[in-house]
Computed example of a mutant assay.
Amino acid sequence: MNAITQINADVQKQITDAFNFRHACKLFDAERKISDGEFETILEAGRLSPTSFGHEPFRILVIQTPEKRELFRPFSWGANGMMSGTDGQLGTASHFGIILASTAETMKAGSDYLQNFYREVKYLPEDVIGMFNGAYGNFQSTDHNITTDREILDWSGKQAYIVLANMMTAGALMGIDSCPMEGFDMEKTTQVLEQEFGIDTNAWRPAVMFGFGYRAGEPAFDKTRRSVEDTVTWF
């Protein structure tokens, strides 16, 4: 086995070990904190994640102030420890946050936001911007028929999940635990984000919550998944 083959084999093992290590951590060790450098790497994995058309229809909110976190406790049953009789991820995660998804206000084909994005973020020339407008407009109206406000928001939410998946994988590779959480009241969360965090909820809506930290104990159950044969079909 040559050096490159050995390196690739080592990397493959690191990846599978990380995925076997990762689980939906319900309770973190509140005394253990992720270092600034490690969490910056997790955030960078999110920032550099791929998104449809490269439109980056997401924002990451990291909520570290305990009082701010507690605003979500009454209606975030997936994060407040209600089902385990603990402080949950809200009270124990080293880092807690919410990924926001863009609404139709910004992600509708031809929007002012996207025209500025093409120029100021992607640095596209005008003729390429015209091509993007046409291709993305056709994608929304014909290819995937994503035209209503809800359909566009759901599409943005799909991109947010790609972002969080990469963040969790980056964490697992460093031995850091995580948990994605959908167990929250969407309307009340949106209200708190607008009233207490100053989020423009016409442009941004909550997609998914997350917690990162170090497990307080080993998982209660072994990891189970369908077999490869039941998961993957080759043609």
Rank of each mutant, 00 (worst) to 15 (best):
Ser178Trp: 00
Ala135Gly: 02
Gln89Pro: 02
Gly134Asn: 12
Glu105Val: 11
Val128Asp: 12
Ile129Tyr: 01
Met186Asp: 14
Ser102Cys: 09
Asp87His: 12
Ala109Arg: 00
Ser178Thr: 03
Phe132Asn: 15
Pro125Asn: 12
Pro74Cys: 09
Phe184Val: 07
Ser94Arg: 06
Lys122Asn: 06
Met181Ala: 03
Ile129Phe: 02
Lys108Val: 01
Ala79Asp: 13
Gly171Trp: 04
Phe72Pro: 09
Thr169Glu: 06
Gly175Met: 04
Asp185Leu: 07
Lys158Leu: 10
Phe96His: 14
Arg119Ser: 11
Gly78Thr: 11
Ser111Met: 07
Asp143Tyr: 08
Asn138Phe: 09
Ala101Lys: 13
Met167Asp: 13
Leu124Tyr: 14
Gly85Arg: 10
Ala109Met: 00
Ala79Glu: 14
Gly157Ser: 14
Glu120Asp: 14
Val121Pro: 00
Gly157Ala: 04
Glu151Asp: 10
Met82Tyr: 09
Ser76Leu: 03
Thr148Arg: 01
Leu124Ile: 08
Gly78Tyr: 14
Thr169Asn: 07
Met83Ala: 12
Leu114Asn: 03
Ala93Lys: 11
Ile152Val: 10
Phe139Thr: 12
Met82Ile: 15
Met167Phe: 10
Arg73Ala: 12
Phe132Ser: 04
Tyr161Thr: 06
Ala170Glu: 13
Ala104Pro: 03
Ile129Asn: 08
Gly171His: 05
Leu114Arg: 00
Met167Ser: 07
Phe117His: 13
Asn145Arg: 08
Gly110Asn: 10
Ile152Asn: 04
Ile162Leu: 08
Asp127Gln: 13
Ala79Lys: 01
Glu105Ser: 06
Leu90Lys: 11
Met181Arg: 03
Val163Gln: 03
Asp87Lys: 13
